[in-house]
Write a protein that binds this DNA or RNA. Structure first.
Lengths: 248, 248
DNA sequence: TGAATAGTGTCTATAAGACAATATCCC
DNA sequence: GGGATATTGTCTTATAGACACTATTCA
């Protein structure tokens, strides 16, 4: 044991950082959009073993000098070209055999983006694709989710990424109840119906229209812009904007 | 790039697991109890630099062949002698400079135990102590919490562990609203008043007694045992028990 | 004018807060 | 009996769901 009276400086200089085996640490980012009646996620095709040709959540190894949040933001930018979107840590997956190569601990994040940004992600090289999520459980039960491509065909998922996607869905559903998460999935201006559709898409169940309107308007997080929809073939709805809660 | 046509077996055999620098991964476990009108946590005294003589959340490095959950259970058993208690992952802390020795990513867990088990933890060697948590923010605002010892004196906290403790408090407060978390902090049998006191201790605010009783009895998670308190100096209250929800 | 959806008003059912009255134990 | 808390019942208020009705736009 070291001499307790030595200074902290001396101790740090003599510390042997390599004395333990260390796992690899990866950061995976679930990029979620809510539109067309379903949740969607961005997946990347694996071009290497293990799981060659299966689809995975975008990720990468954390660098020694960057925080986990910074690693997630870097992956979001590099793999999807997204900046400044909602990004939050989800869960850390650490089963010893989740990656057959070596011990990899994955810190999962999830990002929420509006439809325009989601659809704007470059998928032209066939190695990045949007997947529609098929959630086989109600409410916040939890569990893996299935992914289908634009043609409705199931997509094979690599590693434990079905579980990561499932947990992201569970988390977003949970946040709906007490947090203005819907705004992250919408553009700056939106109608109350847009907001309701996002809530229904995320939760998977329909809500009462009148009650939803009242609740949202009473929440104090919405602000009418004074503008209205255009060219909609029916009475145009008022456009609203999210107010950042200044007082917490 | 590797030849995509090689088999997965061949690829795994040739994979070089040591090609990247890897951070150390630790698991820290916040052990929480709710009694005497405050939340309490178990802390251990640091006997090494950095943070010599400061107090830290019990933790240890994850082994290469154990899951994160297993590492947390091992730490809970080794440091506090606790088995079979509620244990859940909290958050992963990964700031590059959170430990001055080397890059250490900490996967934080929190455990909830009833008062008898909490008080039963061996603190006789002066290296383990119970801390009363002083939460300086309302509701689920979040932020660091202060720790005071049995004599009411502030305890210096090592690393970013004030933040870990603060996040554990925030998480437990959040779970109160939609999850039977109070039961984890109580023994098998308890009165409605016991349950109310735990809720008030965790949340930091008083609740309406009548409404609380009705809500709990209507929740379907409580079962009357038919037994009553003994030797209490007033009308004894009925004892209840938690029913595990069989149907989800 | 008609189709379609936006937005308002009202009634009812449910849950929460407040408060009073009664019950039951130990001393 | 007195002190203390448990338990029940009722009234009031706030919110959610249901439904009817009016408003506004484009084709």
């Amino acid at each position: 044991m070291s001499d307790k009276r030595q200074s902290e400086r001396e101790f740090l200089a003599s510390y042997d950082a390599s004395q333990f085996d260390r796992p690899s640490v990866a950061v995976d980012v679930v990029i979620l959009g809510a539109f067309a009646g379903a949740l969607h996620a961005i997946l990347v095709k694996r071009t290497e073993h293990p799981g060659l040709n299966a689809w995975a959540v975008p990720g990468g190894f954390v660098r020694m000098d960057e925080s986990l949040d910074a690693a997630a933001a870097r992956i979001l930018s590099d793999k999807a070209g997204l900046e400044g979107v909602f990004l939050e840590q989800l869960y850390t997956f650490g089963a010893p055999d989740r990656d057959p190569r070596t011990r990899v601990i994955a810190v999962a994040y999830y990002a929420l983006v509006d439809e325009a940004r989601f659809q704007g992600i470059d998928t032209s090289d066939q190695l990045v694709a949007a997947a529609r999520l098929d959630v086989p459980w109600p409410g916040e039960t939890g569990g893996p989710v299935q992914c289908v491509n634009a043609d409705g065909e199931p997509m094979p998922i690599a590693f434990d990424h079905e579980d990561i996607l499932g947990l992201a869905v569970k988390r977003v559903r949970g946040r709906l109840n007490y947090s203005p998460v819907g705004f992250q999935l919408l553009p700056d201006q939106f109608t109350l119906r847009d907001l309701q559709e996002v809530h229904e898409t995320v939760s998977g169940v329909g809500v009462n229209k009148d009650s939803f309107r009242r609740r949202m308007l009473a929440s104090g997080t919405l602000e009418a812009t004074g503008e209205r929809q255009r060219d909609v073939g029916h009475r145009p709805a008022e456009l609203y904007r999210f107010i950042r809660r200044s007082a917490v």
